[in-house]
Design a binder for these strands. Structure first.
Lengths: 187, 187
DNA sequence: TTTAGGTTGGGACAAATGTCCTTTATATGA
DNA sequence: TCATATAAAGGACATTTGTCCCAACCTAAA
């Protein structure tokens, strides 16, 4: 739900210490509300989050949003676009101030070619995302709202974070009205 | 929707010609209705389909099924489980008679370590699956049934295949009754 | 031919969800 | 302080979807 990947984070921190060329790899800060990736736009960087929370979401043509994941420490962004040379699949917006490593795409591709360890990390990460995405799609389709709602409430409690009602609804793929109904039902 | 990957297929066909050890890699046939993977079960093989159609689906505890994808020529199965050493995430059942290459997991892992080309193919495949899975989750949540229904009808027409109503409903994450209603609405 | 099982199609009602709108809080800047 | 915008909560109604049925149809085995 709130995804993190500390293997990635320590990998990139190590690399950042050694790598002096800030054209290729640099640590940047982004205020809350920044779009790191814009759906259908062209991205020139791959990001790995050092600190903060982002949401990764689709904006559909009917004006509704669907949040795929909340990404936090150590999560990678824009890797799919880099691998497949595509425009951005969805948008990624910062929900808090965010510090992230920005990696040039050619440098990212070099890493993939040369560093077996990095490849493995990435393969592992994509596999985990597939597991999350597909099992969530299944349970969202086949269960009532409350099932997913409980999970997102737990998350906020455990991690001590606050997600706006609108974002919660977008994560569940429902309207605000339905979210409110489900919330009163839980009490 | 009906996924194929001809790069994988020619890769594995090449390898199969060279590789004499049938313990590691062999071509097998499975009659319609065979479970190549069983949800929560342990798998000892990774498969690459040579011919035929399979469905990859979750069985939820409430008795409902959700079909993630229909996999056909060149698609790989069980790779996520092999990469992450997990039990099977979902089941894969053959919808027609199927011919598939069965790869021993240790041999699969060796391939991943040694063959840069294979790694790239797999990374590309996982990336594409993420694109499909997440964008489908989004549109299924945010649009009416008819949107997805039209696509699955097109598929059957173009590919000249027949999917049972039950499977169509499971793919759309709805009940048979709702599927029938949507079908009459389309006329 | 008959039977049994599976697939398909749809009626009737209940439950869930969306749409539209209003009201109440809670900020935040003028 | 006031005004204004924004988030949150929920009423009323329409629409969608699910549940529980039953009937028609087809196919394969007896």
């Amino acid at each position: 739900m709130l995804r993190t990947n500390h293997f990635f984070l320590s990998f990139i921190e190590n690399l950042h210490e050694k790598q002096a060329n800030i054209e290729e790899l640099s640590l940047k800060t982004f205020p809350k509300g920044t779009f790191l990736l814009k759906q259908d736009g062209r991205s020139s960087k791959v990001f790995i989050i050092k600190e903060g929370i982002t949401k990764c979401f689709f904006s559909e043509e009917n004006g509704k949003d669907y949040i795929v994941e909340f990404l936090s420490e150590g999560e990678i962004l824009g890797e799919i676009e880099a691998i497949r040379n595509n425009n951005c699949l969805c948008s990624v917006e910062t929900l808090t101030d965010v510090e992230a490593y920005a990696i040039n795409i050619p440098f990212f591709k070099q890493l993939l070619e040369k560093d077996l360890n990095f490849q493995k990390l990435l393969l592992d990460e994509l596999a985990e995302r597939l597991i999350n995405t597909s099992s969530r799609a299944s349970s969202q389709q086949l269960y009532t709202i409350e099932y997913g709602l409980k999970k997102i409430l737990e998350l906020q409690y455990k991690q001590n974070i606050v997600i706006s009602k609108e974002d919660m609804a977008a994560y569940l793929g429902i309207t605000l009205r339905s979210l409110n109904r489900a919330l009163t039902n839980l009490k």
